[in-house]
Amino acid sequence: MTFEDLKPEVVSILQNTGQSVTERLHEICQLLKDHITYYDWVGFYFKNGDKEELKLRTYVGAETEHDIIPFGKGICGQVALSNENFVVPDVQAQDNYIACSFAVKSEIVIPLFKDGENIGQIDIDSETPDPFNEEDERFLEFVNQEVAKIL
């Protein structure tokens, strides 16, 4: 499926009010992992209350120990502070990278805004070197804009 084909699927999942928000987010993670070959781990992190940290809400992929990520630490923690997309073509080249798995080669993190505030992010790890491009960024921005509508 192309990104354009996935957009109505994302909207449909998010509009299913018979499921909890977390269940819908999990279904989005599964949809993306299943249909984008180089998306090997897909998860949503959100600001943990008033704390300067992110908390993993749901994900699909290999198990992770990183349920909590302090602001500024790793790619996710940096995005929590910068409010900007972060595409990492080669995680080995990043000094401030939190390794989730030796198989991960690249990562993309897109902040999620609600009413102008960065409240979370979608995080995607890939076992493929340098697969992410501007199309991924625009698509994931779309996903986050749609997610923000149900939060």
Rank of each mutant, 00 (worst) to 15 (best):
M1N: 12
F3H: 03
E4H: 14
E4Y: 12
D5G: 09
D5F: 04
E9C: 15
S12F: 02
S12N: 04
S12K: 12
S12T: 15
I13F: 04
L14Q: 00
Q15P: 03
T17W: 11
Q19I: 02
T22R: 09
H26R: 07
Q30Y: 08
L32Y: 12
K33H: 08
K33S: 09
D34C: 09
H35I: 04
I36L: 06
T37C: 10
Y39W: 09
Y39F: 15
D40E: 08
W41A: 07
W41E: 07
W41Y: 13
V42N: 08
V42M: 10
G43E: 05
G43L: 06
F44I: 04
Y45Q: 12
Y45T: 04
F46I: 13
F46C: 02
K47C: 05
K47R: 14
N48V: 00
G49V: 06
E52D: 15
E52T: 13
E53T: 09
E53R: 06
L54G: 15
K55Q: 06
K55V: 15
L56G: 07
R57M: 14
T58W: 10
T58C: 15
Y59W: 13
V60H: 01
V60E: 12
G61S: 12
A62M: 13
A62K: 15
E63A: 02
T64K: 12
E65K: 15
H66L: 14
H66I: 00
H66T: 09
D67Y: 14
P70N: 03
F71G: 05
G74A: 09
I75D: 13
I75M: 08
I75R: 00
C76E: 08
C76K: 09
C76L: 03
G77M: 04
G77H: 06
G77W: 11
Q78R: 12
Q78Y: 00
A80D: 06
A80Q: 03
S82I: 00
S82E: 11
S82N: 12
N83M: 04
E84D: 15
V87T: 09
V88K: 00
D95E: 14
D95H: 11
N96M: 05
N96I: 08
N96W: 05
A99R: 13
A99W: 03
F102E: 14
A103T: 01
V104S: 14
V104M: 13
K105P: 04
S106D: 10
S106T: 11
E107Q: 15
E107D: 07
E107G: 11
I108Y: 09
V109W: 02
V109G: 02
I110W: 04
P111Y: 05
L112V: 12
L112A: 00
L112E: 08
K114Y: 03
E117W: 00
G120K: 09
G120M: 03
Q121E: 15
I122H: 02
I122N: 09
D123R: 08
D123T: 07
D125I: 03
D125T: 06
T128W: 04
T128R: 07
D130S: 13
N133Q: 03
N133C: 12
E135N: 12
D136Q: 01
D136F: 13
F139K: 04
F139S: 08
L140Q: 02
L140N: 03
E141G: 02
E141S: 00
F142Q: 01
V143T: 09
V143M: 10
V143H: 06
N144G: 00
V147D: 09
V147P: 00
A148H: 01
K149L: 11
I150T: 08
